[in-house]
């Protein structure tokens, strides 16, 4: 499957990936409205860690054997056997956040439900990759995961 790969050496700590992730997962799809008008403000599924000297963007690795899926008590968290994408069905999630407690990358956020990267399902290149000003994020075939 194709995954978002972070290239730490080029990460600027600008955190635009977070901005555009929130926008891509907003109701309006507009960067200003998503951040200033929408309530709740959309949650970024990608997190930039570190400081200007050393930073890296971390988002869901869409693991072959996802701990979050195994831990999900409602069946909301699933790995699509075709695409390999791990998604949380927010209508089924009850927000117990057991997934958050077991994700080794810390990639699950708390919103109304568990919130995580869905690789911008169906829209081609994810918003974080598309808008990274320094190609610190790339979207590449890594093989393996999807059947």
């Amino acid at each position: 499957m194709k995954k978002v790969i972070a290239r730490e050496e080029w990460c600027l700590n600008c955190r635009l990936c977070e901005v555009y992730c929130r926008t891509a997962h907003s109701v309006s799809g507009d960067v200003v409205r998503a951040h200033l008008r929408e309530d709740p403000t959309p949650v970024s599924r990608i997190t930039v860690e570190g400081d200007n000297l050393d930073s890296v963007a971390v988002n869901c690795r869409h693991c072959d054997e996802p701990a979050c899926v195994a831990a999900c008590i409602t069946g909301a968290m699933q790995k699509d056997p075709e695409t390999g994408i791990v998604t949380c069905d927010e209508s089924r999630c009850i927000g117990c956040m057991t997934c958050l407690a077991v994700c080794p990358y810390g990639c699950i956020k708390t919103g109304k439900a568990a919130v995580k990267c869905d690789l911008c399902q169906g829209t081609g290149e994810p918003a974080c990759v598309k808008n990274c000003p320094n190609r610190a994020l790339v979207y590449v075939e890594v093989g393996g995961a999807a059947k």
């Binding site: 600008c14 955190r15 901005v19 200007n52």
Partner: peptide
């Protein structure tokens, strides 16, 4: 301004 802080960090 969405207070994203990109200007602050950059």
């Amino acid at each position: 301004c969405i207070s994203c802080g990109a200007c602050v960090r950059q």
